[in-house]
Design a protein around this nucleic acid. Structure first.
Length: 553
RNA sequence: UGGGGCGUGGCCAAGUGGUUAAGGCACCGGACUUUGACUCCGGCAUCGCAGGUUCGAAUCCUGCCGCCCCAGCCA
């Protein structure tokens, strides 16, 4: 519902104003990830923002890899990122790498040097830090700040030629060592990185431009009109503008910052997500408990639900933390509409219908969707022995309990009503099976004289399909696992984030396709696991439970 | 103690001097129901605090308070 209406937020307002005033006649945005890890739901917010704006205002959105730090990056990630963006449903106008611009970037650096606005500095990292000053004290000028243009040009060319060691020199912008904005205290433009192989440019370069220098120029080169980034770059905007104002380039995009997405009961930083994987707390980047796009995808989330979620949470400059409930509501809404209904018993308890003939089996039918006849029906086999869920039976219970109790009657979903006559236990006292009788006259109609309130789901013992079902709960036990300063976030890992069940499924589920989603009635939405399917295993992941307004008791 | 931001119900978020302060999620009632689902009805805020300007302020001004970001040759 939210998806059909265009969202409104302060960035879209700026864009509409720019369009109305004629400042721009068309809009061009970009999504600029660094290929150093997998995308997560926070990136989805940025993707939906950037691509959504391009779509709604008939503009374009580029995909650009911010690959200026070969140390951390890898081709593996660029492929994964492209996959995720495509899966989310977007098509980029142009695909670029910041490294595509290395030669031009070098040229602009030369221009800055020639204008006396950049210099080669021989201070090492520690010295630079000392000279930078602190938040409350101004910095001091580098002793190399006043080198001649000729010397700077010569040194910079030799940096490129590989004559100096890593860290020996940097090219720096000559701005203001006393600026209250730390980013303006002669920031580095180029650093030396010899011997690393860049995933795109190989060994063509041994000096690499910094993000702050690269980003505005890349944006300008691509004709980006609005450069959207997260709040922590607010302080970088003066520098973004300074670079564009001090080189010869005909385009000056406007940087606009918005608040990052924070989600309760999970972590979002790349470092922490990496730790979850490498420390073995989850089984990989696509573990269904991960907030990564790959994880959500494998879990069974739909692209539409994620897009809807991103639109629901909005875009502002305030930083808040969104409840999981919003994400869950998005996927429930989508899946309620389109997921076929099936029955699956997660904790099987045998039921014998004692008045049902031993050799008989009949074929019933159940609608694939209670409100959408066009989705058709599927066959259900009914016979003497069935499985129901242990949680759907109690020897005794109060009237709030609407399921099966000793001597009580319930409706078997899509079938007959049954009455529990006898509970059979083993020596240890555990319930082994239930003996029930059914009322043959209750198929598709209510029994006369009684009203049966409860409905439970079931599966025929004869033809049930065994399968592994994985139930997921929140990864952490607290809303903000990384909120505690003195405790590592791992301490809040939820030991019960994954529960495995050996379940019995209705036969129709035997040929579920990998990635196919269903509603297991009264249980939740489930998706056949894609990874395990490759090994031929029938495994289902619980995407999300059904909403449950029952107190529990 | 420097600079940059933010502060509307439990969470997110509209609102841009005159509205009964949108909407979503959550929650609480109730209706319906062969999913304790879905759907449907109804309930649920005076806008961080304190002053001021104004006929009138969440929206303007002042002063407080709280939270976030910044001292990588990371992005």
């Amino acid at each position: 519902m939210t998806e059909n209406n265009k969202p409104t937020n302060f960035i879209r307002q700026i864009i509409e104003d720019d369009l109305a005033s004629g400042k721009h006649s068309s809009i061009h945005t970009r999504f600029p990830p660094e290929p150093n890890g997998y995308l997560h739901i926070g990136h989805a917010k940025s993707i939906v923002l950037n691509f959504g704006i391009a779509e709604d205002y008939h503009g374009q959105c580029n995909l650009r890899f911010d690959d200026t730090n070969p140390h951390k990056e890898d081709e593996e990630y660029v492929e994964a990122i492209k996959d995720d963006v495509r899966w989310l449903g977007y098509q980029w106008a142009g695909q670029y790498f910041a490294s595509d611009y290395f030669e031009q970037l070098y040229g602009f650096a030369i221009e800055l040097i020639e204008k006396g606005k950049a210099y080669v500095c021989d201070l090492n990292a520690d010295q630079v830090r000392e000279f930078r000053g602190t938040l409350t004290e101004p910095g001091k000028d580098s002793p190399f700040r006043d080198r001649s243009v000729e010397e700077n040009l010569d040194l910079f060319k030799r940096m490129r030629a590989g004559e100096f060691d890593d860290g020996a020199r940097t090219l720096r912008a000559k701005i203001d060592m006393a600026s209250p904005n730390m980013n303006m205290r002669d920031p580095a433009i180029y650093r030396i990185r010899r011997g690393v192989v860049h995933h795109q440019t190989g060994d063509a370069w041994c000096i690499y431009p910094m993000y702050d220098f690269t980003h505005p120029i890349s944006d300008a080169l691509e004709g980006i009109t609005h450069s959207l980034c997260t709040l922590e770059f607010e302080d970088h905007r003066p520098l973004y503008d300074w670079y564009l104002d001090n080189i010869t380039i005909p385009c000056h995009p406007r940087q606009i910052e918005f608040g990052r997405l924070n989600l309760e009961y999970t972590v979002m930083s790349k470092r922490k997500l990496t730790q979850l994987v490498t420390e073995g707390h989850v089984q990989g980047w696509d573990d269904p408990r991960m907030p990564t796009i790959a994880g959500l995808r494998r879990r069974g989330y739909t692209p539409a639900a994620i897009r809807d979620f991103c639109n629901r949470i909005g875009v502002t400059k305030s930083d808040g933390t969104v409840e999981m409930g919003v994400l869950e509501a998005s996927i429930r809404e989508d899946l309620d509409r389109c997921a076929p209904r099936r029955m699956a018993v997660l904790d099987p308890l045998r039921v014998v219908i004692t008045n049902y003939p031993e050799e008989q089996e009949e074929t019933l039918s159940g609608p694939n969707h209670p409100k959408d006849e066009s989705m058709g029906t599927r066959e259900l086999k009914f016979s003497r022995e069935l499985w129901i869920d242990r949680a759907d039976f109690r020897e005794e219970a109060n009237k709030k309990y609407k399921r099966l109790v000793t001597g009580g009657e319930v409706r078997l979903r899509n079938a007959y009503t049954i009455i529990c006559e006898k509970v059979v236990k083993d020596v240890s006292g555990e319930i082994k099976e239930l003996h029930c009788t059914y009322d043959p006259d209750t198929l598709g109609k209510n029994p006369q004289g009684r009203k049966v309130r409860g409905v439970i789901h079931w599966v025929p013992a004869l033809s049930a399909v065994p399968a592994e079902v994985r139930l997921y709960d929140r990864l952490f036990t607290v809303p903000a696992p990384d909120g505690e300063k003195d405790k590592p976030f791992q301490e809040f890992l939820n030991p019960e984030s994954l529960t495995v069940r050996q379940a019995m499924l209705e036969p129709a589920l035997a040929d579920a396709q990998p990635g196919e989603r269903f509603q297991f009635e009264r249980e939740g939405y489930f998706c056949r696991d894609t990874r395990e399917a490759k090994a031929g295993k029938l495994v289902f992941n619980r995407v999300v439970t059904l909403r449950d307004s029952w107190g529990g008791g």
